[in-house]
Design a protein around this nucleic acid. Structure first.
Lengths: 322, 322
DNA sequence: CTGAAAGCGCTTACAG
DNA sequence: CTGAAAGCGCTTACAG
């Protein structure tokens, strides 16, 4: 039905090998022969069957992107740049949302082992045995699954420290921290550590809530925090959704921002999404995306990679700090 | 290197056909034989090479999703539900951002013709010859490329009409319309038509800007509009980004909303993205996504499909109407 | 119930 | 420069 290399060969009166060579632009083909083949291809409207190509070459030229949800500013932006970067290397991106379900994650791991993809970017919240993950090269963001899995992250510790000090320098005296505790060892935990260190350095009492938060439970955690620490006048919020919820909760409680309460968020800025103007530590998402793809390509090609890449964040002033 | 069906067969002391039958859960295999094969598979840590499988079956079990950008609430949400629905049918989603570039779109069309995917969802703004698009089944959103390409849309005309009447009923006397004109015939144009019809019905003067807007140019168009029609007291904004920009511009111009100016947006609501509370015609994105996938699966299976599917929107009151 | 063989559409040594 | 042939790892009639 579909025209194959054989049809083209017959039409052009050459062998299939020759057709293949023309398709792949090999120089070792006579001008006249090439001409004939090209004509035949056009006449028969031939296009290569990539499934066969891939089987033969044993590569899919596809990488998987596993995110908790794509429907989220951070991951959507990440996906955008990952796709863009991957396409520069001739790779396509298979999108997989784990929906924060562990079996969904395992499903994709199975498919990786079945060589549906040449490699994968893992942005995920569950534990996996490193051994299960060796079906293909993997890179990750913000966390490591093991020695063989490089990852990209941002300067969580320093950035958080600076952000908190900024609030203190600008008058905050009772600074709190609210975050969603990662389920697994993750660089995100550095934010909490930074907070605690600053509190110690300034001899301030920590006002800290850092729990495992399920998607949708942000509101509860925020009200708990506000109830527990009604006197805070500066808050570091770790994470985008949380910062949105916190901002809304604080304003609807009648807090004057930033006069009565300052807010800084890690990851709170998505101007293009029309989101409110919270002072934020902005992650270099584009750069993270591109780096992670380049790392993955290197892994696929069996080249040396750096196990941990730390990128610089940017402190962006909004209207929620003095 | 990787263990194949042959290795398993040898290990289990059976033929490769038998192994294949076990893998595919065919009943016609003796219990003991099955046992042996299963053991061998486990012992050798076998997993099927899907590239070979696909070549043999002539299907990739992948569908492509072509969007202008994934980094946008509407498309991200769409992608989320498309992936979810597709996975129910055993399909994966290949993500392709056209970045609003016509050559990027053509690139993916080529790849479709190369049988990288079994089908595609096209959400795109450029013209394409229907003939070029017949490499595999395609479905679309909001527009039709031709008789062979079914699409899903929302009730643009009725919803817009109702929304505008709502503003008029609530006191608006000089109602404007601002939108981004589609480059191609699209159901989105029904919004403009609805606006014009209402203006006529009420004998009101149209205050209309509907241009082709490049990504990033929204601000200019909005200021043009405001300059051109400084007296509007009600505006229908077609599209998400535009509505964000418009809302910001209006407030920063000191317009009292909704007292001096009402705003209704098509597609302006993305609560989970922390976006402001604009009265909106809300598209049933989840349902659109699921329908579009089901249509595509039907096309792939050569079943009958409905060429045009119209889904109901919801009018959601926010704080920008009286 | 099971094995040997053909074939999916390509690529790639191997000869010439 | 080019053709015939083997083979990528599967599935699936075909015989038995």
């Amino acid at each position: 039905m579909e025209t194959t290399i054989k049809d083209v060969a017959k039409y052009a009166g050459v062998g299939v090998g020759t057709v293949s060579r023309v398709i792949n632009n090999e120089k070792s083909v006579g001008a006249k022969t090439r001409e004939k083949v090209l004509e035949a291809m056009k006449a028969l409207n031939y296009s290569r069957n990539n499934m066969a190509f891939r089987l033969r070459k044993n590569e899919t030229r596809i990488i998987a992107l596993l995110v908790p949800v794509i429907n989220h500013p951070f991951f959507a932006k990440l996906a955008y740049y990952i796709e863009d970067e991957a396409s520069k290397f001739g790779y396509s991106v298979l999108l997989v949302s784990s929906q924060q379900k562990v079996d969904k994650e395992n499903e994709i791991i199975t498919r990786i082992n079945q060589r549906e993809v040449d490699g994968a970017v893992f942005v995920t919240h569950y534990m996996h045995e490193e051994d299960d993950l060796l079906g293909c090269p993997i890179v990750s963001i913000d966390r490591s699954f093991g020695e063989n899995i490089p990852y990209v992250t941002s300067d969580n510790y320093d950035a958080t420290k600076n952000a908190i000090k900024y609030m203190i320098d600008h008058g905050a005296e009772r600074v709190g921290f609210i975050g969603s505790k990662p389920l697994v060892p993750s660089e995100v935990s550095e934010r909490e550590r930074a907070y605690i260190d600053v509190m110690e350095e300034y001899s301030m009492t920590p006002r800290l809530v850092n729990e495992v938060i399920q998607h949708g439970e942000e509101t509860i955690v925020v009200s708990d925090f506000i109830e527990k620490y009604p006197d805070v006048d500066g808050v570091f919020v770790s994470g985008y959704t949380l910062s949105q919820v916190f901002y809304e909760a604080a304003t609807s409680l009648g807090k004057k921002i930033p006069d009565e309460m300052q807010i800084v968020s890690y990851d709170g800025i998505f101007k293009q999404w029309g989101i409110s103007n919270i002072t934020s530590v902005e992650q270099p998402i584009e750069e993270m995306a591109r780096q992670v793809v380049r790392l993955l390509i290197k892994k696929i090609r069996n080249e040396e990679t750096c196990q941990r890449t730390v990128l610089k964040t940017k402190f962006v002033l909004g209207t929620t700090t003095r």
